[in-house]
Amino acid sequence: MQLTLNNFTKTFGELTVIDSLDLTVKTGEMMALLGPSGCGKSTTLFTICGIHRMNGGTLHFGDRDVSNLPSQQRNVGVVFQNYALYPHMDIRENIAFPLKVQKQDNNTIARKVKEIAELVHIPELLDRRPAQLSGGQQQRVALARALVRKPDVLLLDEPLANLDAKLRLEMRSEIRRIQLETGITAILVTHDQVEAMSMCDRIALMKDGKIVQLSEPSEMYDNPSNTFVAGFLGNPPISFVKVQVQGDSFGFGSNKVAVSAALKPRVNGELQLGIRPEHFGPQFGSDVQGKISFVESQGREVLYNVTLETGDMIRSIQPAGTRLKIGDAVSWGVSAEAVLAFDLKGDRL
């Protein structure tokens, strides 16, 4: 079911957290609300499920206006960061609770609980208590409970934040699988760009209560609209250097990066270049000189920080096997086609 937020405004006392935000999530789509803490993403989520009231604007599920409906009548499934399972009930009762509230008959409840338990792969856990389950299993139960009454929208509030690294990887694909199998419209709130990029169809990147950019993950990575978006996506992060356009190249100190044909008509004077770590290295030439100032081995790859004579630092990610040490002088190049140019205010050129 399509979800439409129109002109949504939220204030807490004097403080305006979100000012006239528009957001449309298409039927069956999984949308990430991504952003640093305090950007308003959780506020948006809690408004959609009805915990917070809207101070302005409207919210529609399909054609149904739910702006002023209480949570109970919105038909939204929510998975909370700490799962919020009911500790005094066993797993079966936990999942059955939303159906019990609707006073469905016992046979129907038993059948639906069984179905959903199979969907999230926990049929053998139904008689246990939440405290006896691992984090990943509790997560599955929370998903099952949110999905069992077939909600119009599924909301996930930092669902992976409480899991250890390995489980996080597993649950990332599991949540996506379950979302695709049920075909439910879902919103994922997260501050982790990897989660947003790997799980969602589209990402809404938020900052200070506004959506800075809304696009598909790869599009957002390749074509960030400003330095904030460019800096938020990508790990290790993008490096920025101030450069001067000098004829056919960007110059900074004695270093040079060629201006690509595509950028040529749009740039002149002083601007910022964004260089992702995978676009800086020996394979792109030798026009940039610097010294290795930091080395971090990540197993398959090695991350180098290269400090230039201008004081700028550019990160580079190289396949493992290159054995450079801190202090080594290097002459590497930058991929001219892949650099991102921003004006001094940070907007993309």
Binding site: G50, Q72, V78, F80, N82, A84, Y86, F97, P98, V101
Partner: peptide, 25 residues
Amino acid sequence: PWEIEMAGVQDGASRFMVWRKLVLP
């Protein structure tokens, strides 16, 4: 945890039912 109450409300239960069935135990 307040999330338990919020989860109950999302599951469609009234505030009183949430108190009675989820918080009281």
